[in-house]
Computed example of a mutant assay.
Amino acid sequence: MEILLQELYKTDIHLDKFHFRKVYLEDSSYQINGISQSGKSKLAKNYLLGLKKNSYLYIDCSDIRIDIKELNNTLARFCNLNKIDTLVLDNYKKEIKIVNVSQLIICCETHLDIDYLNTVQLYPLDYEEFLAYEHKYDSNALNHFFQLGGFPSMHKVHSDERTIYIQKTLKYALDEMEFDILVLCAKMMAQKLSPYSIYERLKQTRKVSKDKLYKSYENLYAKNYIHLLEKNNHPKATKKIYLCDISLKSALSLDKHFGRLFENMVYLELLKSGIDCFYDDGIDFYIPDQDEVILCKPFADERTLFKKMEAIEAFIFSYGIKKVTAITMNREGSVSHPFSKVEMLPFDIWAIGD
Rank of each mutant, 00 (worst) to 15 (best):
E178M: 11
K223T: 15
V208K: 03
K192F: 03
Y267S: 07
L229A: 04
C277L: 02
Y279R: 04
L184Q: 12
Y225S: 01
L252E: 03
Y242K: 07
S216P: 10
L254Q: 12
S194R: 11
E200V: 09
V266C: 14
R260G: 00
E269Y: 08
S253F: 06
I181S: 01
K192I: 04
H227A: 01
L193A: 01
I241T: 15
L182C: 10
D255S: 13
K207S: 14
Y242T: 09
M177Y: 04
Q204R: 15
L243N: 00
K272G: 05
Y242M: 06
G274M: 10
Y217F: 15
D180C: 05
D281F: 12
M189A: 11
P288K: 05
L182P: 03
S273C: 07
Y286W: 13
D180K: 15
P235R: 12
K215D: 07
K187E: 14
V208M: 13
L248Y: 13
D276I: 10
V183N: 11
Q191T: 14
K215F: 13
I246Q: 05
D284N: 12
K240L: 03
K212Q: 12
D284R: 02
S216C: 12
C244S: 14
D280Q: 09
Y225R: 04
A186D: 07
V183L: 14
N232R: 07
K236E: 07
M177H: 04
I275E: 04
C185Y: 03
D281T: 15
Y286R: 08
Y279Q: 04
P288I: 08
C277Q: 07
D289V: 02
S273T: 06
Y225G: 00
E200R: 09
I283M: 02
E269G: 13
R260S: 05
Y225T: 03
E178R: 07
K207G: 08
G259Q: 11
Y225K: 05
L268E: 00
I198V: 15
D289R: 14
V208R: 04
V183E: 15
N224R: 15
L254N: 10
P235W: 08
Y286E: 02
L261N: 04
